[in-house]
Each structure stands twice: as C-alpha cells, then as structure tokens.
Design a protein around this nucleic acid. Structure first.
Lengths: 147, 147
DNA sequence: CATAAAAGGATAAATTATATCCTATTTGCC
DNA sequence: GGCAAATAGGATATAATTTATCCTTTTATG
C-alpha cells in the first residue's frame, strides 16, 4: 500500500523541472544530483515520462528535458501512472470478475470508493499547484515551524 | 500502490467470520475454502488478526475462531494494519526527515493529505457496515444489474 | 489416548522493485 | 569530419518483499 520509488522519484523529478527557469533545459544528471535519485535509474523514469508526453526530451550536447505541456495541465495522477502503470488499490479492481465472480462483494464496493477518492485527489492536483506551493515554502521557510 | 494479498485475505476472512452465526465457531480451513485462500497462509493471517485482538482463537477439537470484539468496533483500517503493519502512502511519511531533510517539500504535503483521506475512509468503515451490506446484497442479488 | 484444532519457527518459491551496464543514436561545436 | 555530451533502450544483475508451505509443538475435546 505504498507508492514505489519510481513514483516518488517521478514526482520529485517533475517538480524539479517545473521549478527551474523554463527557458533553459534541465539535464537528468543534475536532477538526479539535486533530488538524490540514482542517475541511471532516473533516465528510465524520464523515458517513461517522455513517452507519456509529460516531458519533452532533447538529445545531444545542448540536450536535456523540459515539460511536455504546461504545468497546470499535468496532474499528479498522470505522473504516477506514467511510471507505475494504472493504479489499483486492490487486485479485484483490475478486471471485472476477479473477486465478485458470482455474488456481489461488499468489500469490492469499499475498494471502488477508496480508489475513487484517491484517484480523484491525485487527478485534481496539478504540477503547477505543487510548484506554486514550493515557491511559497521557499519564500517563507520558517512557516513549517508553525505547522 | 496496491493492497497486498495479506490485506485482501484478511478483510475477506473477517467478513466471512462476521457473516456466520455468532454462536458457532468457525474453522480457518473452512474459511479458506469458502474464500479461496491458501489454507496454511490463512493460519498466519488469522494469527496476526488474533494478536491484534480482532479475532479470538480457540485450540483443540472444538476450536476455531470468532470475532475478538463486536463487528461495529472493528474498522477496516484495523484489519489491514493488523496484517500489513501501519499504512504509509509514501516512504517520506514513515519517519520525519525522510524527504524534507532541510527545506519543506510540497509533495510531502500532498502525501499527508492523501494518506489522511485514505486512512479516514478505512477507519470509518466498520466490519459491521460490510456485514450489513453483504446481507443486503444477498437478499437482493439482482441489484448489481442496476449498477 | 486419539483426534482436531491453532501456534510458531524455518524455509522455499515466486514475484516485483531497484539498479546498473553496455551499445546505439542524436546533436552541437570546434 | 570528429569529439563530446546528452538521451534511448535492451539485457541483465541484485535485492527486497511477498507469498506460500513444511514441520513440530501446544491445547483442548471426547
């Protein structure tokens, strides 16, 4: 019941790109360094994010990565599912007939609800939201003492 | 990002016990058969549930398992955490200082929120709720055609 | 005392997650 | 053209976790 590192890394990497000056390219090795992510592993994650259209990548000497679309059009759900595949809170949600073969299952209904809420939350949170919040936290770093 | 089988099995096993006549003991082997759970594996799960006080177990010939307390005092969260340990939606929530070493992390805040909602949902859903729903579904098995 | 149940330790088997290596491809620049 | 710096991607190793079983012990009943 836990996000994999791929997902965690992906979110942090995307946030890293989103909070950099948009006019300059970001290089994965630097992201890895800043975010403390194994560099070669990150290239795989970046590749998934690129295939999902969330990053645009450029090869060559002046290459690197940039956001594939505006940050407010990228949801956290998209990021996570890009690197982990579709989220299922329980096996019985993967395909119909996995748990409720014959009779209806009350647990199944619960998983549907829980999954709906979780996915809703992640789908409604954009990378832009996170980036904005990051800026707030940076400008008032003492804020977390009040929390 | 998925419930393990332990958790899934535990919920189904508890529900199985809760929907049986309370005056008679239930035997794990029968639960395993009805719920399609590997029998020996289920004994381990039952053991965890027993240690958490959610089941009471009785050895010997007329032995078996019964609910450790009234079904309305058993939450789904308790069941899952009994067999999986505490739920963390992301590593950075396990202990303070895992992700927000120095600066505050906006992703962290998101995980706190998501985890809060998920745990809240599971904590507010009781085994009694599920058992009641199970009875409804059994009495009107055609209901799921409407859904 | 035989039988039927759970308890628990050790361990095997399988699956998944994490990470790296190596080679290829692309691009910019001298 | 050739070098350097970047991503692309296949293959593979390593590690961790999950799932499952086996075997022995303990407890209780009749």
């Amino acid at each position: 019941m836990e996000l994999s590192r791929r997902g965690d890394y992906a979110v942090r990497a995307m946030l890293d790109v989103a909070t950099r000056p948009a006019d300059r390219m970001t290089v994965t090795k630097e992201i890895a360094l800043r975010q403390d992510i194994p560099p070669i592993f990150l290239t795989k994650i970046v590749s998934s994010l690129s295939q999902a259209g969330l990053l645009r990548t450029y090869r060559g000497v002046a290459g690197g990565v940039a956001l594939g679309k505006p940050a407010d059009q990228i949801s956290l759900l998209q990021i996570i599912e890009a690197v982990e595949g579709p989220i299922y809170i329980n096996r019985c949600l993967i395909r119909r007939g996995e748990c409720d073969r014959d009779r209806a299952c009350p647990a199944h209904e619960l998983w549907v609800q829980a999954q709906g809420e979780l996915l809703g939350l992640l789908a409604n949170k954009s990378l832009a939201d996170l980036a904005r919040r990051a800026q707030e936290l940076q400008q008032a770093p003492m804020a977390d003492f009040a929390a």
